[in-house]
Amino acid sequence: MQPVRHPLRSERIWGLLLASPALFIIGVFSLLPTLASFLIGFTDWDLLGAPKWVGLDNYTSLLADPVFPKVVANTLLFVVLYLVLDLVLALALALALNQKLRGLGFFRTAYFLPVVTSMVAVSIVWEWIFDPRGGALNEVLRWFGGEPVHWLSDPATALPALVVMSVWKSLGTNVVLFLAGLQALPGEVLESAEVDGATGWRRFWHVTLPLLGPTVLLVGILAGIRAFQTFDSVYIMTHGGPRRSTTVIVYWLFQNAFTYFKLGKASALAYMLFAVLAGLTWVQWTLRKRWVHQEQDT
């Protein structure tokens, strides 16, 4: 893509010049903080005084902190519940959308409205839905003769309630991605399967799903990365409670940083999260590359 014919000498300068505003902003407000965060993780710092170098203390004390395993468990539970619900529902809706029907655009738009709405606004609406007295969810339960549930103030239901809301919020994204994946499937294979008499469930299970496998995995990893970073809803709806049952890693990080003012500990925690997410991203990139290339080869 580089010009072959008499490259202008000025191009070297022009290139840097054009890139420099973005590089400057990213360098100062993104790259620099990322590096600083790593260093802060080895200090004891309360934002007001000078940071004190403490080596690996933050990491060792994090591992020894009795809250840490609980936070990790909460986070993993959140991510797993979220992934299962989200992928199953999104796949079902995408399959339903993947037929020639009118109004496809309408449905896609409907599923997408929650995606473009701010998590803060959504959290407030769902707080009202989860309200034990007069909230919509308990009203529906009551029609079916159920007892009111105290969704957000019971340690057993608070986290699942947040999961349900998060799935609702982000479902549209994955429906669209799955739909794109479905539409890209080679039509001949599906048709030949039909000729062979594979219909309905059998066809989905033995033909469509294996073909869609890579997409499911890629979409799943992206959704997982998002789920790991859950914060807004916890901040608005539960403040990490009741009894820390909804204290997920980013909320705890925020608490350590801006409630307890343990910046070193918060930064150490941030880098642990970073390591996990970087790992997931790396897996995603690698897989994507491999599959995209395979597709192009065949």
Binding site: P33, T34, A36, S37, F228, Q229, A270, Y271, L277
Partner: peptide
């Protein structure tokens, strides 16, 4: 930098 979660940069 696209890979870095925003929470990592928050404090600094």
């Amino acid at each position: 930098t696209m890979m870095v979660p925003v929470q990592v940069n928050l404090v600094p």
